[in-house]
């Protein structure tokens, strides 16, 4: 597993229990967690290979701890990420406030990171419209404002789950050519800034 080469780092951000892990689990293993599963050791890091026409793109999907107590460290996580899937719970307005926080952080610190807003648990809303706390159009406006993609997903039914990662891979593929020549510059630049240094010690 560790020998697997990964093309792009995709980081999952979102408040605790919005369903980041379920989303990844659904996408990678095509299932929704309701009971004990013995065959996966952890769902925190997965490498997923996607066939894009003739090319193969491997996404390394990083799950992150969403608890507020680790908020200060989130910058260490999304450093060098190509895409960030910022999750919020459609039935929990506070989770969207947190999502806004991450979007702001990403805009400040990772300009090359594409942002994907992802509303989760859409199956709950389909069952009961009154549960929806976050308006679709509000998010759409916000997404346009920040230049992000917007999806509403359900890990239970699988609705839109594949689409969001497919989009991530497509976008990576189309921008990869752009970065190809620039890439060395990026990597070295990051070394020079030594984010690790700042994150671990000066905050």
């Amino acid at each position: 597993m560790s020998a697997m080469r990964v093309d792009a780092k995709v980081v999952m951000l979102g408040k605790e229990s919005v369903g980041k892990t379920s989303l990844v689990e659904r996408y990678v293993h095509h299932r929704f967690l309701v009971g004990p599963y013995q065959n996966t050791i952890g769902a925190a890091f997965v490498a997923k290979t996607i066939q894009m026409g003739e090319k193969v793109v491997t996404l390394g999907i990083w799950d992150t701890a969403g608890s507020e107590r680790y908020e200060a460290m989130s910058r260490i996580y999304y450093r060098g990420a190509r895409a960030a899937v910022v999750c919020y719970d459609l039935t929990d307005s506070s989770s969207f406030q947190r999502a806004r926080f991450w979007v702001k952080e990403l805009q400040n610190c990772e300009e090359h990171c594409k942002i994907y807003l992802c509303g989760t648990k859409s199956d709950l809303i389909e069952g009961d419209r009154s549960l929806r706390q976050i308006d679709y159009h509000d998010v759409q406006d916000f997404a346009e404002e920040i230049g992000a993609q917007h999806f509403e997903t359900s890990s239970k039914t699988g609705n839109n789950v594949d689409d969001i990662f497919q989009k991530v891979a497509e976008d990576y593929n189309s921008t990869a050519f752009q970065y190809m020549t620039e890439e060395t510059g990026i990597d070295l630049g990051q070394k020079k800034d030594s984010y690790f240094y700042t994150c671990c010690h000066n905050n």
């Binding site: 697997m4 990964v6 890091f45 200060a72 460290m73 996580y77 010690h201």
Partner: peptide, 29 residues
């Protein structure tokens, strides 16, 4: 951080766990 081959550190599984360790160290601090 300084001397590892960056491709390994930035994206792969090893990189993920290492990042978590950095977080843990920062958290403890």
């Amino acid at each position: 951080t300084r001397f590892c081959n960056p491709s390994r550190l930035m994206t792969g599984e090893d990189g993920y766990y290492f990042t978590n360790l950095c977080c843990a160290a920062a958290f403890i601090e």
